[in-house]
Structure formats: C-alpha cells, structure tokens
Amino acid sequence: MDFLFIHGAGGWLDDQPLAEELRTRLGVPVAMARYPEEDMSAAAWFAELDRQRDALGPDLAIIGHSFGASMALLRLGGGWHGPLPRGLVLLATPFWGSEGWQAEYALPAGYELPAGLPLYLHHCRDDDTVPVDHLDRLAALLPGAVVRRHETGGHQFAGQMAAVADDVGLLIS
C-alpha cells in the first residue's frame, strides 16, 4: 500500500514535519511531491495529483492538508481515473465559497464522494488559518465522514498527529 501526502498552499516546507511524523508513526514511506505553488489552479494541482496517483499505483491512501485536502476532495468528486484510493484523511480542509473564501475551488452542488470511500476529517479548534466552522460545513455536506475535532494543535496539528496516524492506519487493515 502507498501513502500520498498532499501539502497545503505554499506549505511544502511547512508540511514536511506532518508527513515525516506520519512516516515515523506508521513505519512506512509517505510520498510528498511538491505541488505547483506558483500555479494555484485546480487544473495544475489535479495534474500533479494524477501524476502521483499513477506513479504510486492502485493501492493508495491519500492524506491532505488544507488546500491540498480540498484539491483531493474536489478531484475525487469528479474526474478521478482508475481504482479509488482506500480512503482519505484530510486535515484543516477549507470549505470554499464560505464567507471570504474563493468560490472557484468550491465543491459543486450535489457533490458526493464515491460510495463506500472512507473519509476522515480532522480539524483543530484553535486553527487560525482555516476556521473550525469549515469543518462543520464539510461534515454537513459529507454525512458519511468520520469527524475528529481537536481542542489544540493549530493549523499544523502540533501534538495531534498520533490521532491522524491512527486513522491512516485504519486504511491499512
């Protein structure tokens, strides 16, 4: 099984500790490519996500953070080719189109993930980058998601990666 970590916007360096902690806790490689931070279009990020998916193979789990999490959700809702991943574990996912957040990345009306795809949504209440109310909006849109609210940890999940690794581990069995 392969693991793909999709970093946040401008966060390739900032998110390295998250991917490294997952590698350490899970004892497996976690791929983390550099997504095109100079081109924040969904098309550019989808192209890299597709390239990574094809390189890693069909037995894949996706972990996404912030903007990267939202791109994984958007891609899985339409335009995904090949076998579905074993699941998604998403951290601090923005709900685009809500107050002040660009609608160009919004999930379309009637959005649904493929049936049976496990989804874990993690968010820290003290996140000062993506407000925790984004989690509530996503949970309402995706009623099958397992929702994990952490009291502390901020946007970079300080002290919370054990819980994230536990959910990623559930996708292995």
Rank of each mutant, 00 (worst) to 15 (best):
121 L>C: 07
54 D>I: 04
54 D>G: 11
129 T>G: 09
15 D>E: 12
16 Q>P: 07
96 W>M: 05
164 V>F: 02
99 E>W: 10
120 Y>T: 08
36 P>M: 12
6 I>M: 05
154 G>D: 12
26 L>Y: 03
47 A>G: 11
55 A>F: 07
152 T>Q: 15
170 L>V: 02
164 V>Q: 01
69 A>F: 10
80 W>C: 03
51 R>L: 11
112 E>Y: 00
100 G>K: 08
62 I>P: 00
146 V>T: 15
107 L>T: 05
162 A>V: 13
125 R>C: 11
76 L>D: 03
164 V>S: 04
103 A>D: 05
38 E>D: 12
124 C>V: 03
149 R>E: 12
57 G>R: 04
87 G>Y: 10
60 L>C: 03
19 A>V: 06
72 A>W: 00
56 L>R: 08
126 D>N: 15
27 G>N: 04
53 R>A: 13
30 V>H: 13
170 L>N: 01
14 D>S: 11
15 D>S: 15
117 L>P: 01
81 H>F: 00
125 R>I: 13
123 H>L: 09
8 G>C: 15
130 V>N: 09
4 L>C: 03
121 L>N: 07
57 G>P: 06
45 W>Q: 13
19 A>Q: 12
103 A>K: 03
130 V>D: 07
76 L>I: 03
74 L>I: 15
50 D>L: 03
18 L>R: 00
11 G>A: 15
149 R>M: 07
70 S>W: 08
14 D>N: 11
22 L>I: 02
141 L>S: 04
4 L>W: 08
56 L>E: 07
131 P>S: 06
65 H>D: 10
43 A>R: 12
70 S>R: 07
74 L>Q: 14
140 A>C: 01
116 G>M: 10
43 A>F: 07
29 P>M: 04
40 M>T: 10
111 Y>K: 14
64 G>P: 05
27 G>R: 08
110 G>P: 11
84 L>N: 02
112 E>R: 10
118 P>N: 09
87 G>R: 00
115 A>I: 01
17 P>R: 08
165 A>Y: 00
127 D>V: 09
37 E>Q: 09
126 D>A: 12
37 E>P: 00
32 M>K: 05
149 R>N: 06
95 F>L: 07
103 A>G: 02
170 L>Y: 01
82 G>C: 15
62 I>M: 06
164 V>E: 01
77 G>P: 01
7 H>P: 11
112 E>V: 01
32 M>T: 11
119 L>A: 02
11 G>E: 12
130 V>E: 04
94 P>V: 11
57 G>Q: 04
172 I>W: 14
71 M>Y: 07
63 I>E: 04
47 A>F: 08
169 G>C: 02
35 Y>H: 04
98 S>Q: 12
15 D>H: 14
95 F>K: 06
97 G>W: 01
